[in-house]
């Protein structure tokens, strides 16, 4: 009997359990069975991957970047969701607030999500710096609602939006997924509008240590990529995980986050 690959994932929502039980059932029918281990935070998961407890880790972009840093580039990204290849950060404000660019945030109140969220905290600060703004130019509030989960719960971004609605901030930086979840400003045109959208960057990816043999990894990736949105048995898992197709990772999409982590001296074990 083939030894299952052990995959780590962070339990950011109760749906993580049916997702991974569904994936386990799917892979049980393939040549590459899996089992999974759930973690309460990405720091602990990356530790387990590096120590060899895991064969693979389902990592956020920050967890991938931290794994790269801690393994001197030795780890490998195997696959991502289609939605991970074109992630963006969106700056939003109440409709009619008059923001036209990142520069127009100067002197205004900006609310960011949890400090370990790439999309709602780390990258927004990076984009502000690229626009010539420093943290001192803007009155920044951070809402650390879900630290440890790298913004996966979306909670800190929703809290940031509430802060804007409650007039505790003028603008918020959120992930494109949260912006889509609230209807992209179309659901209630009078509430929010976006005034700046970042370039695309990469988000989650399956991460392997070099100790995972190619002969084991490649067939597993092939089986993963074979999951089919049109297959009624695969689709519920894919819907819950937020993708329509598994795809090869886009490594150049992590460059902005690598730069941001370096600029902001982000702690290595977040």
């Amino acid at each position: 009997m083939t030894t299952p690959l052990v995959i780590g994932s962070v339990a950011y929502s109760p749906n993580v359990i049916p997702i991974w039980e569904g994936l386990r059932d799917y892979f049980a029918e393939t040549t590459t069975p899996i089992d999974f281990v759930l973690f309460s935070n990405y720091g602990r998961q990356v530790d387990a991957l590096i120590s060899g407890t895991l064969d693979l880790a389902w990592n956020t972009n920050l967890a991938w970047v931290r794994t790269v840093a801690q393994t001197d580039d030795a780890c490998r990204a195997l696959a991502s969701r289609d939605t991970d290849l074109n992630f963006k950060t969106v700056f939003v404000a109440r409709t009619g607030s008059g923001f036209t660019s990142l520069q127009s945030l100067q002197g205004r109140r900006l609310v960011l999500g949890s400090r370990d969220s790439a999309q709602a905290a780390i990258l927004p600060v990076h984009f502000l710096r690229e626009a010539g703004l420093s943290e001192g130019d803007i009155r920044i509030t951070r809402i650390d609602s879900d630290v440890g989960k790298h913004g996966d719960t979306g909670r800190s971004e929703l809290d940031a939006l509430r802060a804007v609605l409650d007039d505790r901030a003028d603008a918020a930086a959120i992930g494109i997924n949260t912006w889509n979840a609230i209807g992209r400003g179309e659901l209630l045109p009078g509430a929010f509008e976006s005034f700046w959208t970042s370039p695309e960057y990469s988000h989650c990816t399956f991460t392997a240590m070099p100790s995972l043999a190619i002969e084991r990894a490649d067939p597993w990736v092939a089986n993963l990529l074979a999951m089919d949105w049109k297959n009624p048995q695969h689709r519920p898992i894919m819907e819950m995980e937020g993708l329509q197709a598994w795809v090869p990772p886009r490594l150049e999409g992590y460059a902005s986050l690598v730069a941001a982590v370096s600029e902001q001296r982000i702690a290595p074990r977040w």
Binding site: R94, G154, L158, L161, R162, L165, T178, A181, I182, L187, L188, G190, A191, F192
Partner: peptide, 11 residues
């Protein structure tokens, strides 16, 4: 805005 707050709670 308060209606949108309900949606944020829901999300």
């Amino acid at each position: 805005h308060t209606a949108m707050g309900v949606v944020l709670d829901l999300i």
